[in-house]
Amino acid sequence: MIRIPCPHCSARNSAEFRHVGESATRPDPSTVTPEQWRAYLYERSNPAGWTTETWFHTVGCRRYITVERHTVTNEIRAARPAGRDGRGGREPAEVLSTRADSGSPDAGGQA
């Protein structure tokens, strides 16, 4: 299993993290068209190569981190706190509900 070099906790097994997904730029909600918004919600480029994605360190520091990973070799060349990417933008890492797959022990079943 791969190791994620968490900027706060140093290299940890990926089982300590939740893979959130490929990073995306949030369109301006006041001007976006439905097609553009839905592309933001559901479409990602999913390359066979270097990708920028977010991981959440569930059982560690509980911070979101942005990772640059090569999807074929699993080599990781960068890992930094999320939301402070080089472009200067601040993007939410989570876009859709993780209700179904939050493996956190905090989840309490039906209300």
Binding site: R90, P92, A93, T98, D106, A107, G108, A111
Partner: peptide
């Protein structure tokens, strides 16, 4: 109760990243 963990992470998502 079933959303306790999800909502905590959802809030952290917005606060940490956006």
């Amino acid at each position: 109760s079933s959303g306790a963990a999800t909502v905590w992470e959802w809030l952290e998502n917005w606060l940490q990243t956006a």
